[in-house]
């Protein structure tokens, strides 16, 4: 209950003051370059890694990257760069 209230408060403040949401609310930010590279910032870990799909846990659920010959190019504590032939991105469990 307290957590939810805090979250709403932060959301309102971010909206009112026009602050970056990914910083204030720890939201994931996904940057897709063409169809060969994707950068997911503020991730919470890798749920599953297969050459056909990679599931990445975020604060709002999970981001599923589908494609061919997918590879984790770089893995940092908060950022993950995935390369390969990207066919689609699916956001699962949004609205938390």
């Amino acid at each position: 209950m307290i957590k939810e209230t805090k979250h709403r408060l932060l959301q309102g403040l971010t909206h009112t003051l026009d602050l970056p949401a990914e910083v204030m609310l720890d939201l994931p930010r996904t940057t897709l370059t063409g169809s060969s590279k994707i950068l997911i910032e503020n991730h919470k870990g890798i749920l599953s890694y297969q050459p056909e799909h990679i599931r990445v846990l975020t604060a709002q659920g999970e981001t599923v990257v589908r494609g061919k010959r997918l590879k984790i190019e770089s893995l940092f504590a908060t950022d993950v760069v995935i390369t390969g032939v990207i066919h689609g991105i699916e956001l699962v469990g949004l609205g938390v």
Binding site: G45, L47, S48, K71, I72, E73, S74, L75, F76, A77
Partner: peptide, 21 residues
């Protein structure tokens, strides 16, 4: 448990690259 291992490494601040399954 390779995924768990990768997550553990990233949480420890260990940078990995060219991760190829």
């Amino acid at each position: 448990a390779v995924e768990e291992f990768l997550n553990s490494l990233s949480r420890r601040g260990i940078h990995l690259w060219e991760v190829n399954r």
